[in-house]
């Protein structure tokens, strides 16, 4: 999906995912590692505030990836 999205929409795309090796095999250009498979952008063990802060960190990293020029597959 990630490759086709980037290619067809012709804009940078970032893949936030937990199993980074899969994303690499698939061919994503910008990859941001996530927390866990059932909750990639959260952690139910945290308080709601902490959890949202964690989510924000990951999204910030994804936005950084989207503003960065890359030549090859890059894990941020």
């Amino acid at each position: 999906m990630i490759k086709e999205l980037e290619d067809v929409a012709d804009v940078p795309a970032v893949h936030i995912c937990t199993v980074v090796p899969i994303s690499k095999t698939v061919g994503a250009n910008r990859i941001v590692p996530a927390i866990a498979i059932p909750h990639p952008l959260g952690d139910p063990k945290m308080s709601p505030e902490e959890e949202k802060a964690l989510r924000r960190q990951i999204v910030e990293k994804a936005l950084k990836a989207l503003t960065t020029d890359v030549e090859e597959q890059t894990v941020f």
């Binding site: 999906m1 990630i2 086709e4 999205l5 980037e6 290619d7 067809v8 929409a9 012709d10 804009v11 940078p12 795309a13 970032v14 893949h15 936030i16 995912c17 937990t18 994303s23 996530a34 498979i37 059932p38 990639p40 952008l41 999204v59 994804a62 989207l66």
Partner: peptide
Amino acid sequence: GLELKEAGVDAIILTST
């Protein structure tokens, strides 16, 4: 992708579990 292009989107975030 075609719809997002049409909509003038500048970047895409894809999340996977």
